[in-house]
Design a protein around this nucleic acid. Structure first.
Lengths: 214, 214
DNA sequence: TAACTTAATGACCAACGAGTCATTAAGTTA
DNA sequence: TAACTTAATGACTCGTTGGTCATTAAGTTA
């Protein structure tokens, strides 16, 4: 690239998030170890030394990337659930819509792939992610399932396991997007995929009338 | 570890697969770049130089790990499908059982996690894996879905997308096992998980009688 | 049993990349 | 405007690791 690099410019307030954005992109693409800090710095438009003004080391940068991804979407969904009054399935759909808008269509959507790839190398961080993202989402989905079962809208099922089966296609949609999608001829339409997932669940979770009669 | 290392012993016939087994284990755990060849050699009970007698370089070893994982289970499932005469849902269950026995409970179960983690770094290999594992499996599931829709057993749905929704929880079961399971308090029982997945599908895919009347 | 072949070894070298720091340049203050 | 502060720089150091190869040892052949 023959462009003249941007001249030095102080941007103390913006640098941390610019560096995080560059780091998120490259860590998601290549993984922690295969990402070079010189590339992260270049992507953020600075030199490698600048990185060390804001982050102590490579691992500190990595942790900041994951921790910043824990954005208030979880709390938002918790608030949505607290207010909800109509059917439990409507609530599931509303939670999914909100998640898709706020995470599914942003750079943070790459974090599941990154976390899955690096969990064994950073177990404490994986635990942090599990407790603050995965488990809070699971709790929301779980309480919605129980609510539907209690009202007779859903058939009785083991909730803890059903949560995992229900969440799996959603996480996989993101993981696949930042991973295997690079290397296959055709790709799934995410909206249609989520629609079919919910469609199967709408009927698959339903308490059928024959069951009521038994 | 204070054990005296095994004395040198020639094992020309067994070495390649011993090295592959060691490499599979460490690549799945740490990822390609973070895995040191000295550790792979040590795990196989040899010195690092021995590795280079059988594999040209680190990348060649990695590719052999993925390629060896394409085991004849796909062909086996294709044969099972060709012979099947009862319900399409029974066939889906049979295919899943066979996959679980032959892959889900072996070391090869780690390959989806490894492939997902490294696809962007090894796009040709990801394409190979997609075409030889993922897409052949998708074709089997797809023909089974069409078979069920044609007979009236399943309701009409977009097959290509339904395949992905159906396969996602199965792949996720393996990915999660070799990734996030290290770092969360409790874990899903795989048999129950797959049972609930199939249970939701049994009812979720079904063509209901009301639909027939419309 | 000596001569030979070949599987295995691990010290070594070169390349790489995380992290450092003396220097430079942007911006602020007096 | 000079003096000062501080954000940015990139050459450099040092440790790590992929890959090599002279040497060793296991096994075979004559």
């Amino acid at each position: 690239m023959s462009a003249i690099p941007a001249p030095r410019k102080r941007r103390k307030e913006d640098r941390p998030s610019e560096l995080l954005g560059a780091a998120l992109h490259l860590f998601v693409e290549k993984g922690f170890t295969a990402t070079r800090l010189e590339d992260v710095a270049a992507k953020a438009g600075v030199s490698k030394g600048t990185l060390y003004l804001y982050y102590e080391n490579k691992e500190a940068l990595f942790k900041a990337v994951i921790q910043e991804g824990v954005i208030p979407i979880i709390a938002e969904n918790e608030a949505i659930a607290a207010k909800h009054t109509s059917s439990s399935f409507d609530l599931l759909e509303k939670l999914l819509d909100n998640w898709w808008t706020k995470i599914g269509q942003t750079a943070f959507a790459g974090i599941p792939k990154l976390m899955v790839a690096e969990a064994r190398n950073f177990p404490e961080l994986a635990t942090f992610y599990y407790e603050n993202v995965i488990n809070r989402s699971r709790a929301l989905v779980g309480s919605t399932l129980r609510r539907g079962m209690n009202s007779g809208e859903f058939r009785p099922m083991d909730v803890e396991t059903t949560i995992d089966v229900l969440i799996a296609p959603i996480l996989m949609l993101l993981i696949w997007r930042f991973s295997m999608n690079c290397c296959q001829g055709s790709q799934t339409d995410p909206q249609q995929y989520l629609q079919i997932h919910m469609d199967i669940l709408r009927q698959g979770l339903r308490r059928l009338e024959k069951e009521s009669q038994v």
